[in-house]
């Protein structure tokens, strides 16, 4: 395959990945890695390197918009970044020593989990009554403006549990080159009981720094190839930008079901190919 043809295919695939990723909130990495490895036969280590660059591009782009709205809790983000950056670096260092087949299987399992979480109705677990000592000490409790303009207060719970879960999320992000937004949402929504508007924007805000920490390791190892990273990052960002513009006009529930089926299919493919040794 020539460089020109490869670039065009990856550019189109990355555009589709970015578009679907932003419409469903899953992120582009989940499609781009199967596309590169299963369809184009790219080694998974190159695919991981290119994917992490697209994670930085899309999460930083949308964080720019969210931060201005004042919903993002910068303190929660900074505090939990301590866990995610340390573990992302560990994950990125360890990833080349693991059999690529296992990485593909792990990737497939995370994909399946993300697909299930996407279909689950999001519920707010906010309770203003109790707040732990750690949350008070680190000033994590906050408030955010709702659409009607009123300021809503919230408190943060089980900080230690959330911090531990973020450590897992960062490790997965470093191992697989994805944003692992699904795990971050588990940590913030389910464990720390942060309202989901705050948790989704804050998780997005953290993703850039987490991904940057492992991207540096990948770069030094030669996993970031300009010929792959260029069309991947441009395509995904363009797709995500278009996706954020049409988000309001489409029926996202139906789209989510279709996308969940696609993601589940990719997940099974990754697991099957991983087990059958195609990656090794």
């Amino acid at each position: 395959m020539t460089v020109l043809l490869f670039t065009i295919i990856v550019l189109l695939g990355a555009f589709a990945a970015g578009l679907l990723g932003s419409l469903t909130g899953l992120g582009g990495g989940v499609i781009i890695i199967p596309l590169l490895t299963l369809v184009l036969g790219v080694d998974i280590h190159y695919a991981i390197g290119a994917s992490i660059i697209s994670v930085i591009a899309t999460s930083t782009g949308s964080a720019a918009a969210y931060v201005k709205e004042g919903i993002t809790n910068i303190r929660i983000g900074m505090f939990l970044e301590v866990a995610t950056t340390i573990s992302a670096v560990i994950g990125a260092v360890v990833t080349v020593f693991i059999d690529p087949g296992y990485i593909a299987v792990l990737f497939g399992l995370i994909l399946l989990m993300s697909a299930l979480m996407m279909l689950k109705k999001k519920a707010n677990h906010v309770d203003l009554e109790t707040s732990g000592h750690i949350a008070n000490f680190f000033k994590l409790n906050g408030s955010y403006p709702t659409e009607s303009g009123e300021i809503k207060r919230y408190t943060v719970h089980n900080v230690a549990g959330g911090f531990a879960m973020m450590f897992v999320a960062g490790t997965i992000s470093g191992l697989l080159g994805i944003g692992s937004g699904a795990l971050k949402v588990i940590a913030m929504d389910n464990i720390m009981k942060i309202p989901f508007k705050v948790s989704t924007t804050t998780s997005n805000f953290m993703m850039g720094v987490t991904a940057a920490a492992s991207a540096v390791v990948y770069l030094h190892r030669g996993q970031i190839d300009p010929g792959i990273a260029m069309p991947v990052s441009l395509g995904v960002l363009l797709g995500a930008t278009v996706g954020s513009k049409i988000l309001v006009r489409t029926n996202s529930d139906r789209l989510k079901i279709i996308f969940a089926v696609v993601v589940a299919f990719l997940a099974v493919q990754m697991i099957y190919n991983g087990v059958s040794g195609r990656f090794s």
């Binding site: 490869f6 080349v96 030669g222 970031i224 010929g227």
Partner: peptide, 29 residues
């Protein structure tokens, strides 16, 4: 911009990403 220049110079070259090689990448620092 880099991508345009890259396509201009390498358009006809064949890609080979089948096996990851840490030493193949010249711009890694």
């Amino acid at each position: 911009v880099g991508g345009l220049l890259y396509l201009l110079h390498h358009e006809e070259q064949l890609v080979d990403y089948h096996v990851f090689n840490s030493l193949q990448q010249e711009y890694s620092s």
